[in-house]
Amino acid sequence: MSIITNIIILRISCISIDFLLRLIPIIIDWLNASIAIDRTLALVMSTKYDKSKSRRAVKWTIISILLFSTSSLLHDPINRQLIEDREETRTWCLIQYSSALQIYNSTINIFHFFVPFIINIVTAFIIIFVAARSRATAQRQQTYKQHLKEQFHRHNHLILSSIILVILATPRLIISFISGCMKSVRNSAFYLVGYFISFIPPCITFIVFVLPSKLYKNEFYAATRRFRTFIGRQ
């Protein structure tokens, strides 16, 4: 927009900013999916679940997610370039793919979008059914169907939060398939709203995951009390 004219700053921002804005939500989605898997394993394995092994696995999982997500998107910054438009007196940050790379880019977008969502939904249903089966075995005064209904009511936030997050992230997927440049402020509100809606999920993790869950909310309150006690001692 001719506000910044330093070519080095423009080149760095062209390569990095859009890449990071694309990468970070993907990393968050995969971290959420990993938490869902760990939560499910803890329930399914019950007494066999080893917390110390889980903590060690977390470190490798985070590293793997960072490496996998970054490497799958490296084609993005590599193919970015600055184009000087003298007629409109502006500098464009353009990205151009070959047909094969375009197919790969679309495929990887769909993969990063749907797979974490599917993991979240599937693990949520596994938790509900396994918990209902365990309760039905331990508490025979109620039928399995009654326990199942109770567990759906208790854990419905897992399903609802996954659906809400994927709905909010949908504009990000749609925009990734739209090619072209916004040359003026005409209809800019539509694109900007869709663009910023995509970043709502990382900003409302607390609202979506913690507040609807009695367990997580109690843990949050307990952690807050411990923090206040620690600060008071200082």
Score class of each variant (00 low, 15 high):
residue 73 L to N: 06
residue 119 I to K: 00
residue 221 Y to L: 15
residue 191 Y to K: 15
residue 196 F to C: 03
residue 207 I to A: 06
residue 107 T to Y: 15
residue 203 C to I: 09
residue 13 S to Y: 09
residue 53 K to A: 08
residue 32 N to H: 11
residue 153 H to K: 10
residue 200 I to S: 09
residue 76 D to S: 14
residue 201 P to G: 02
residue 36 A to R: 00
residue 45 M to G: 07
residue 160 L to F: 11
residue 192 L to D: 10
residue 113 F to I: 00
residue 10 L to Q: 06
residue 208 V to P: 10
residue 14 C to P: 05
residue 103 I to T: 09
residue 169 A to D: 04
residue 142 Q to S: 10
residue 84 E to I: 14
residue 201 P to V: 01
residue 21 L to E: 02
residue 9 I to F: 15
residue 184 S to K: 02
residue 114 F to G: 01
residue 186 R to E: 10
residue 19 F to D: 00
residue 11 R to K: 15
residue 171 P to I: 01
residue 185 V to E: 10
residue 164 I to K: 08
residue 123 T to W: 06
residue 140 R to N: 13
residue 208 V to F: 15
residue 127 I to A: 07
residue 160 L to A: 02
residue 50 D to Q: 12
residue 157 H to Q: 11
residue 172 R to V: 02
residue 28 I to G: 09
residue 20 L to V: 00
residue 95 I to R: 07
residue 206 F to I: 00
residue 159 I to C: 03
residue 202 P to V: 05
residue 71 S to E: 01
residue 95 I to A: 05
residue 153 H to I: 06
residue 170 T to H: 11
residue 219 E to R: 11
residue 105 N to R: 15
residue 72 S to N: 02
residue 210 V to S: 02
residue 90 R to D: 02
residue 125 F to V: 03
residue 147 H to W: 14
residue 233 R to H: 07
residue 180 G to C: 03
residue 98 S to P: 12
residue 79 N to A: 12
residue 25 P to H: 01
residue 233 R to Y: 14
residue 12 I to K: 07
residue 172 R to E: 00
residue 168 L to S: 02
residue 230 F to C: 14
residue 59 K to M: 15
residue 10 L to M: 12
residue 39 R to N: 08
residue 10 L to V: 05
residue 206 F to W: 05
residue 30 W to A: 01
residue 106 S to A: 15
residue 47 T to M: 14
residue 29 D to N: 08
residue 56 R to N: 13
residue 184 S to V: 01
residue 157 H to T: 04
residue 41 L to M: 12
residue 110 I to M: 08
residue 149 K to Q: 08
residue 92 W to N: 08
residue 16 S to M: 11
residue 94 L to D: 06
residue 84 E to T: 07
residue 231 I to P: 11
residue 190 F to E: 11
residue 18 D to V: 04
residue 120 N to A: 05
residue 3 I to A: 12
residue 146 Q to R: 03
residue 164 I to H: 09
residue 125 F to D: 00
residue 24 I to R: 03
residue 42 A to T: 00
residue 80 R to P: 14
residue 233 R to Q: 08
residue 97 Y to D: 12
residue 231 I to H: 09
residue 183 K to L: 13
residue 126 I to R: 06
residue 43 L to V: 09
residue 93 C to A: 07
residue 36 A to S: 04
residue 145 K to S: 00
residue 65 I to S: 04
residue 119 I to H: 00
residue 37 I to L: 14
residue 40 T to N: 13
residue 155 H to V: 09
residue 30 W to L: 10
residue 219 E to S: 15
residue 205 T to L: 14
residue 209 F to P: 02
residue 157 H to N: 14
residue 83 I to Y: 11
residue 39 R to E: 04
residue 7 I to L: 09
residue 123 T to R: 03
residue 193 V to K: 10
residue 69 S to Q: 03
residue 164 I to Y: 13
residue 152 F to D: 01
residue 125 F to C: 03
residue 124 A to N: 01
residue 169 A to I: 07
residue 36 A to D: 00
residue 39 R to F: 07
residue 165 L to W: 04
residue 189 A to C: 13
residue 177 F to G: 10
